[in-house]
């Protein structure tokens, strides 16, 4: 079975790209949390739990939301057959540091449960799955840099399985104010590509080109 990339979203350096088109954002912001919150409000996400998330989850949620919204027909697929495969370099290091701040002083020792629950990178997958009610397979990989072959291979294996009809794949990385997200929707397809809509054959080369 062949597959296509039916949409994608890139968020990096205060710029957002959806299916090749730049989304004009209301305000350029240096602080990552303020930038992500501004984007959340701009796209009317209306999901109050967003504010409780760490920046890795906020970034992943926004990139996935924009990719899904701009994918034709993704919302009509069976949700228990939609998988999520993400990757990054810094794992949950950004939140690990925030957690450390709450436990480093032995007198003012108040570890925060709300911070601690985000000290794993795959929590971003859980947040996306909960929001969109996806119940398929999931995996999170940590690699030195974005590895298009790794993601393509793993997503392709899933799509060759009867239990998966579509996958949210990509890269979501946060380390301090440095951030980089590339999230795409891949679906099984008969390659009936519609020129009016964004669609591209799912391959490692296509993923690499879209990411860059």
């Amino acid at each position: 079975m062949n597959s296509i990339i039916s949409s994608y979203c890139k968020i990096k350096n205060n710029a957002i790209w959806i299916n090749g088109k730049e989304l004009v954002i209301d305000a350029k912001e240096v602080d990552l949390t303020i930038f992500l919150t501004g984007l959340y409000r701009q796209i009317n996400m209306n999901y109050p739990k967003f504010f409780k998330m760490d920046n890795l989850c906020k970034l992943g949620m926004l990139a996935a939301e924009l990719a899904i919204r701009n994918s034709v027909g993704f919302d009509k697929l069976e949700k228990d057959k939609i998988a999520i495969t993400l990757s990054n370099n810094a794992s949950s290091l950004d939140t690990d540091r925030n957690h450390l701040k709450t436990i480093i002083d032995k007198i003012q020792y108040f570890p925060s449960p709300a911070i601690f629950v985000y000290t794993l990178p795959n929590i971003v997958i859980g947040e996306v799955a909960i929001k969109h009610k996806f119940a398929g397979e999931n995996a999170f990989f940590v690699s030195e840099e974005f590895d298009a072959e790794l993601i393509h291979n793993y997503v392709s294996i899933l799509l060759n399985n009867n239990d998966t009809t579509a996958v949210i794949g990509g890269w979501v990385n946060v380390d301090g104010n440095e951030y980089d997200a590339f999230v795409y929707c891949a679906e099984k397809s008969n390659f009936n590509l519609d020129k009016e809509e964004y669609k591209q054959i799912h391959s490692a080369e296509a993923i690499r080109q879209l990411y860059n």
């Binding site: 409780k52 108040f110 570890p111 925060s112 449960p113 709300a114 629950v117």
Partner: peptide, 13 residues
């Protein structure tokens, strides 16, 4: 439930 744990921390802190 995580909020409940945070409220416990708030009381102590």
């Amino acid at each position: 439930s995580i909020d409940a744990l945070e409220l416990i921390v708030l009381l102590e802190k």
